[in-house]
Nucleic acid binder design. Structure first.
Lengths: 222, 222
DNA sequence: CTTGCCACTACATAACTATGTGGTTTCATG
DNA sequence: CATGAAACCACATAGTTATGTAGTGGCAAG
């Protein structure tokens, strides 16, 4: 896949601040492998343009007049699924970050990135990576970490976690029993304890809490 | 926060391959701001050592004889919550990656990283970032993306999502009916469709899939 | 040794869920 | 207008779950 011929990455910028927009354009256009097709000050303008359908990468501000960056990503994601979108913002609050990522952005940069980092980020995204400024990356990774031991005593035991995982798979008590070598009533015994500890009284609530508290891992394999 | 005085980052390496271990040690020790306290060939040795409690960053292989890297992370995470752990592996399959991250690692590198990237990754992790090789970062980000319109027509509709969310809360059909102004049988009607679209046949499986595919947001309220 | 806790087994029952089949209304389309 | 898809309501029933109550054997602490 190594290509000694320079592959030109075509970029569209959406950013309402004139200086930022022109600064970025200059920085990127200066690189021989990057080409800014056009830079717009709103989603509306960008989406109406001819350039948007020809771009490989869109660098999009989150805070925009009119259609927000988040809305913009959703639209682009639907209309041009191949398009690679990198969000940029001065803010790094969870809402903005996760909304942007959920909407389909593959990267998230703080606006203070250096010119070098900006160029690297665009190449990285184009080549299948997900550029993020370090604190953003950490925020993202943290969503995978289990919260540190709740409130003592009500921690689920190994066996209980095991059974909770089976519950999430939708197995019947009988099937779970076979899986973990217990009688149906043995399974019930543990489930009672699980419900008590999680303060729930139904299977689906238990699964829901179990996943959101990362007691069990959602199935990310498929 | 800029510190002109070099802050020394103390590192422990756990890697069973001798050449890899020595290679990394050499690379890292060569940097003036990095210090490899010690390099071990197994978790057991590392955890018994004096150095482990003094380290800032642990660089850990996933595939290890005896205690695996994943188990190792879990142990370290519990014993030394401040410790920063970066996983390294030749493999980038989802299971390894997400197990490692869920266990508490803040970064994940492919073993083929260049010396420069390795040093950068350790500094990045130490400063609050989450170093990942590009394809890993993309995998992680992809977990946030809604699956692109599966196979057409099998997308859940607004009403179905609404009801799925109620299902996750553990409400009975009757309670859901009151919530969304439907008869119990009306609720059933939608649930059937949800099950069919998600290819499940129980409430908890639906909730489980719904959360892991980000159709509904896990309850983060309490 | 006996007291208490734990993991498990056992049984009973009300409630809820999953699923099939069929009906009504509404609304867009040919 | 006829057709068909959506969205909803209805009823029936087998199967599963939630919960109470109770008993057993193991094991550790007093």
């Amino acid at each position: 896949m190594e290509n000694s011929v320079q592959e030109l990455i075509k970029i569209v910028i959406v950013e309402d601040n004139k200086y930022m927009r022109e600064g970025w354009t200059t920085i990127l256009d200066f690189a021989p492998d990057l080409l800014v097709l056009n830079a717009f000050e709103s989603c509306e303008e960008a989406f109406d343009s001819d350039e948007i359908s020809k771009a490989n990468v869109v660098l999009m501000d989150i805070e925009l007049p009119g259609m927000s960056g988040i809305e913009g990503v959703k639209y682009l994601q639907k209309e041009y699924p191949e398009l690679i979108i990198i969000m940029a913002s001065v803010f790094d609050d969870n809402k903005n970050v996760f909304d942007a990522l959920c909407a389909g952005a593959v990267g998230y940069l703080m606006k203070k990135v250096s010119p070098e980092e900006l160029k690297k980020a665009i190449r990285d995204a184009y080549e299948g990576g997900s550029p993020m400024t370090p604190n953003i990356a950490r925020k993202v990774i943290k969503t995978f970490h289990q919260p540190a031991a709740n409130d003592e005593g009500e921690q689920l035991k190994e066996r209980e976690l095991e059974i909770l995982a089976e519950l999430a798979k939708g197995k019947s008590y009988a099937a779970i029993g076979e899986e973990v070598y217990l009688s149906v009533d043995g399974v019930r015994y543990h489930i009672r304890n699980i419900y008590r500890k999680l303060h729930v009284n139904s299977r689906s609530e238990a699964v829901s809490k179990g996943i959101s508290q990362r007691l069990i891992n959602p199935d990310l394999s498929e």
